[in-house]
Nucleic acid binder design. Structure first.
Lengths: 253, 253
DNA sequence: TTACCGCAATATCAAATGACATATGCGGCG
DNA sequence: CGCCGCATATGTCATTTGATATTGCGGTAA
């Protein structure tokens, strides 16, 4: 639970030229003109508390978001309640493209922690492409990049053992969080419950627990009070046959 | 290895304004100007025989393709040979975006049948965005649409039983093929072996066979000599908790 | 023809994973 | 202070799925 901000701190809608994300080495720089255009599209910020929906399955031509702070995830549910988490969203990720481009939103997005979002109107996308093709290109990049995440997760769920899957998810998240400068040595914040891990990996809750315990017993990880510590990253990686390379220079809209 | 075409057969390169795909109701129309621009990007056609690679994992900034005829699939393999098919490609699908935009191609593409491709140079993408933002928008649409396919497959592999998975894949492919006007009543061509089905659904070959036999015994499908017949589409759909809606008006680059 | 090869089909057995029951610990809240 | 709800942990057993081996069939090449 994040501390409640006093009203004075509350009002700080961040201008794009002071966006703390842009300062990170992970993100590519933009020209002042591009930045101003993005700033002009931004209509407001939005806060969503943990566990609340950001987008619902079935939403039509919804707003577009860039995640500024906090964690979220994309998921889809079946009629009987089974849920599959498709990928996790971290600061800098772009949200709502599919529902905006195609007919309706087929996947829901839920906040995992308290979250703040940069809000763009649903009809901003085409003007952006027309006025700034470079930014349209960046949107495409972000889409292709998210597809990469889903591809990787599908390989995992389809072809890796439970042990390998869990290892691969933890490595993956660890590296993404670290790329955002949020790591403290070999430990990062980790707000997922075992339920989220299970739903992301196509495992039952019980088996996820067993597998986490097993990895813990193997001294490959330490998970406690919302922090994940990966001791032997290299051996985890060879266990999972997975090497995530976090990219520098990803675009940020 | 590209097959050497005899000079006579070789010459049937199709101009975009006579492309048989564009005539289909599934595809959106383009302005003559857009069509001419696409025609100008096209450098040649390429044929790939069944089972041969179209793109290899690791290719850098490869060419871009639009699939004109035949079937292909995107896949990823692990070090020990396990293979996961991510999605199947049918005429009109755009190939190579990820490897072109991101650093390298992380997924391979293999021809399932003999295939012909419309070839665009690897550096054509940015000029396309700049000269014709509408076409850039279409590329983004195609990317988001393919992500939808991978999302759906991930839900399947993660949360559906083997029976549901097989049912859902067959419905999905049936509808896509039908949307291309290739159906003959309730039957469509079906060039996949059980091996492909297994690799797409995260199942073993043997279990895939068992499951197909079971569906056959339930009189839900008929699979023979490269043709798939779905008798009771509605009951299959409720079995799989899956309803694919094939979109009209998808863009074609 | 004959041998071979890929694909499908099937049996048997083993392993991975899921389902259910239950216990423990911890924080919020009346 | 005690109760309740949620997340984690663990045992037992059932089920699904995987591994291995074998057979048959149809195409094809020597």
């Amino acid at each position: 639970m994040r501390p409640v901000c006093p009203p004075t701190a509350m009002k700080s809608e961040i201008a794009c030229n002071q966006c703390p994300l842009r300062a990170l080495p992970a993100f590519a720089s933009v020209t002042p003109e591009q930045r101003d255009f993005i700033q002009g599209m931004k209509v407001r910020e939005r806060s969503v508390p943990a566990q609340a929906p950001v987008l619902r399955q079935g939403d039509k031509r919804s707003e577009l978001y860039t995640l500024l702070t906090g964690w979220a995830f994309r998921y889809q549910t079946l009629a009987d309640g089974r849920r599959q988490i498709l990928n996790f969203l971290l600061p800098g990720d772009f949200i709502g493209l599919q529902g905006n481009l195609l007919d309706v939103e087929r996947t829901g997005v839920e906040a995992l922690t308290d979250v703040t979002l940069c809000v763009f109107p649903g009809d901003a996308l085409w003007p952006l492409f027309r006025a700034h093709p470079e930014l349209g290109f960046d949107v495409t990049w972000l889409c292709a990049h998210e597809k990469l995440l889903v591809d990787d997760n599908l390989v995992s769920v389809g072809r890796r053992s439970a042990l390998e899957r869990v290892a691969m998810l933890l490595i993956h998240l660890f590296k993404r969080v670290r790329a955002l400068g949020l790591a403290d040595g070999d430990s990062v914040p980790f707000p997922l419950t075992q339920h989220h891990v299970a739903d992301a990996l196509g495992l039952s809750l019980v088996h996820t627990n067993r597998t986490l315990r097993r990895l813990h017993a193997m001294k490959m990880l330490h998970l406690e009070r919302g922090r994940l510590t990966l001791g032997a990253l290299a051996s985890l990686q060879s266990l999972a046959d997975y090497e995530a390379r976090e990219l520098e220079d990803r675009p940020l809209i």
